[in-house]
Protein backbone atom coordinates (compact mmCIF):
# COMPACT_ATOMS: atom_id res chain seq x y z
CA UNK A 1 0.00 0.00 0.00
CA UNK A 2 2.69 2.47 1.04
CA UNK A 3 4.68 1.55 -2.01
CA UNK A 4 1.76 2.35 -4.29
CA UNK A 5 1.10 5.73 -2.76
CA UNK A 6 4.73 6.67 -3.07
CA UNK A 7 4.73 5.72 -6.73
CA UNK A 8 1.66 7.87 -7.39
CA UNK A 9 3.22 10.87 -5.71
CA UNK A 10 6.42 10.39 -7.67
CA UNK A 11 4.43 10.43 -10.91
CA UNK A 12 2.83 13.83 -10.27
CA UNK A 13 5.69 16.15 -11.28
CA UNK A 14 6.29 14.08 -14.40
CA UNK A 15 2.69 14.35 -15.61
CA UNK A 16 2.76 18.12 -15.05
CA UNK A 17 5.82 18.32 -17.25
CA UNK A 18 3.86 16.44 -19.90
CA UNK A 19 0.84 18.71 -19.49
CA UNK A 20 2.77 21.95 -19.84
CA UNK A 21 3.50 21.68 -23.59
CA UNK A 22 -0.11 20.66 -24.26
CA UNK A 23 -1.34 23.72 -22.35
CA UNK A 24 1.12 25.90 -24.21
CA UNK A 25 0.00 24.58 -27.60
CA UNK A 26 -3.63 25.08 -26.62
CA UNK A 27 -2.94 28.64 -25.50
CA UNK A 28 -1.09 29.45 -28.72
CA UNK A 29 -3.88 27.88 -30.76
CA UNK A 30 -6.50 29.92 -28.90
CA UNK A 31 -4.53 33.11 -29.43
CA UNK A 32 -4.01 32.30 -33.13
CA UNK A 33 -7.69 31.59 -33.64
CA UNK A 34 -8.53 35.06 -32.33
CA UNK A 35 -5.75 36.88 -34.12
CA UNK A 36 -5.91 35.02 -37.46
CA UNK A 37 -8.46 33.49 -39.71
CA UNK A 38 -7.96 30.03 -41.15
CA UNK A 39 -8.26 29.38 -44.87
CA UNK A 40 -8.05 26.11 -46.76
CA UNK A 41 -6.21 26.42 -50.06
CA UNK A 42 -7.97 25.05 -53.14
CA UNK A 43 -6.28 24.81 -56.52
CA UNK A 44 -2.76 24.71 -57.89
CA UNK A 45 -2.00 28.27 -58.90
CA UNK A 46 0.22 28.94 -55.87
CA UNK A 47 2.44 25.90 -56.23
CA UNK A 48 5.09 25.28 -55.01
CA UNK A 49 4.49 27.79 -52.19
CA UNK A 50 0.97 26.64 -51.30
CA UNK A 51 -0.56 23.32 -52.23
CA UNK A 52 -4.15 22.19 -52.53
CA UNK A 53 -5.42 21.29 -49.06
CA UNK A 54 -2.94 23.44 -47.14
CA UNK A 55 -4.43 25.22 -44.14
CA UNK A 56 -3.10 28.70 -43.60
CA UNK A 57 -3.50 31.52 -41.13
CA UNK A 58 -4.41 34.89 -42.53
CA UNK A 59 -3.82 38.21 -40.82
CA UNK A 60 -6.97 40.17 -41.63
CA UNK A 61 -5.60 43.32 -39.99
CA UNK A 62 -2.47 43.35 -42.13
CA UNK A 63 -3.70 46.11 -44.44
CA UNK A 64 -5.52 48.32 -42.01
CA UNK A 65 -3.68 51.58 -42.47
CA UNK A 66 -0.88 49.80 -44.31
CA UNK A 67 -0.47 49.03 -47.97
CA UNK A 68 0.30 45.60 -49.35
CA UNK A 69 3.80 45.23 -50.74
CA UNK A 70 5.24 43.34 -53.64
CA UNK A 71 5.84 39.71 -52.66
CA UNK A 72 3.09 39.45 -50.05
CA UNK A 73 0.77 36.50 -50.40
CA UNK A 74 -2.74 37.84 -49.97
CA UNK A 75 -6.38 36.88 -49.86
CA UNK A 76 -8.36 38.97 -52.34
CA UNK A 77 -11.98 39.15 -53.36
CA UNK A 78 -12.41 37.50 -56.73
CA UNK A 79 -13.23 40.39 -59.08
CA UNK A 80 -15.20 38.04 -61.28
CA UNK A 81 -17.15 36.01 -58.77
CA UNK A 82 -18.56 37.89 -55.76
CA UNK A 83 -18.30 35.98 -52.51
CA UNK A 84 -15.27 33.99 -53.55
CA UNK A 85 -11.78 34.69 -52.25
CA UNK A 86 -8.56 34.14 -54.13
CA UNK A 87 -5.09 33.52 -52.81
CA UNK A 88 -2.36 35.11 -54.94
CA UNK A 89 0.91 36.94 -54.65
CA UNK A 90 1.23 40.71 -55.03
CA UNK A 91 3.29 41.28 -58.14
CA UNK A 92 3.08 45.05 -58.16
CA UNK A 93 1.20 47.95 -56.62
CA UNK A 94 0.97 51.39 -58.17
CA UNK A 95 0.41 54.89 -56.84
CA UNK A 96 -3.34 54.52 -57.24
CA UNK A 97 -3.32 51.42 -55.05
CA UNK A 98 -4.05 49.18 -57.96
CA UNK A 99 -2.60 45.76 -57.18
CA UNK A 100 -1.43 43.26 -59.76
CA UNK A 101 -1.96 39.70 -58.50
CA UNK A 102 -0.12 36.67 -59.82
CA UNK A 103 0.00 32.96 -59.07
CA UNK A 104 3.36 31.40 -58.24
CA UNK A 105 2.50 28.79 -60.85
CA UNK A 106 1.73 30.98 -63.89
CA UNK A 107 1.03 27.98 -66.10
CA UNK A 108 -1.99 27.16 -63.96
CA UNK A 109 -3.16 30.49 -62.69
CA UNK A 110 -5.94 32.90 -63.50
CA UNK A 111 -4.83 36.25 -62.16
CA UNK A 112 -4.31 39.91 -63.07
CA UNK A 113 -3.03 38.85 -66.47
CA UNK A 114 -6.63 37.94 -67.17
CA UNK A 115 -8.80 40.08 -64.92
CA UNK A 116 -6.53 43.10 -64.60
CA UNK A 117 -5.46 44.88 -61.42
CA UNK A 118 -7.60 44.89 -58.28
CA UNK A 119 -8.00 47.73 -55.80
CA UNK A 120 -5.98 47.32 -52.63
CA UNK A 121 -9.20 47.77 -50.61
CA UNK A 122 -10.40 44.41 -51.92
CA UNK A 123 -7.56 42.56 -50.19
CA UNK A 124 -8.83 40.67 -47.17
CA UNK A 125 -5.55 39.98 -45.49
CA UNK A 126 -2.08 38.56 -45.68
CA UNK A 127 -1.23 34.86 -45.53
CA UNK A 128 1.35 34.40 -42.75
CA UNK A 129 1.52 30.82 -41.60
CA UNK A 130 0.79 27.28 -42.71
CA UNK A 131 -0.40 25.06 -39.87
CA UNK A 132 -1.46 22.00 -41.79
CA UNK A 133 -0.09 19.57 -42.91
CA UNK A 134 2.17 19.48 -39.87
CA UNK A 135 5.06 18.25 -41.98
CA UNK A 136 5.06 21.63 -43.74
CA UNK A 137 4.22 23.74 -40.68
CA UNK A 138 5.82 27.15 -40.78
CA UNK A 139 5.77 30.71 -42.08
CA UNK A 140 4.55 31.34 -45.62
CA UNK A 141 6.66 33.67 -47.71
Amino acid sequence: MDDGRERRRALAPGSLAMLAPILLVTAVAAWASLRFRGFAVAGNSMLPTLAEGDWVLVDERAYRGRLPRRGHIVIADDPRLPGRQLVKRVEAIDLHRQVMLAGDNPEESTDSRHFGPVRSQTLRGRVRWRYWPLARFGPVR
Binding site: R37, G38, F39, Q85, L86, T110, W132
Partner: peptide, 21 residues
Protein backbone atom coordinates in the same frame (compact mmCIF):
# COMPACT_ATOMS: atom_id res chain seq x y z
CA UNK B 1 -8.09 17.56 -33.73
CA UNK B 2 -8.39 18.08 -37.49
CA UNK B 3 -12.07 18.86 -37.10
CA UNK B 4 -11.24 21.50 -34.50
CA UNK B 5 -8.45 22.98 -36.60
CA UNK B 6 -10.18 22.88 -39.97
CA UNK B 7 -10.62 26.35 -41.45
CA UNK B 8 -14.11 27.54 -42.30
CA UNK B 9 -13.06 29.58 -45.32
CA UNK B 10 -11.62 28.56 -48.65
CA UNK B 11 -9.07 30.56 -50.61
CA UNK B 12 -8.90 29.70 -54.28
CA UNK B 13 -5.48 29.38 -55.85
CA UNK B 14 -7.60 29.69 -58.88
CA UNK B 15 -7.21 28.72 -62.48
CA UNK B 16 -9.80 28.84 -65.23
CA UNK B 17 -9.95 25.65 -67.21
CA UNK B 18 -8.49 24.30 -69.41
CA UNK B 19 -5.19 25.20 -67.82
CA UNK B 20 -2.06 23.34 -68.74
CA UNK B 21 -3.48 22.74 -72.20
Amino acid sequence: LTRLLAPRSVAFAHCDGPCGV
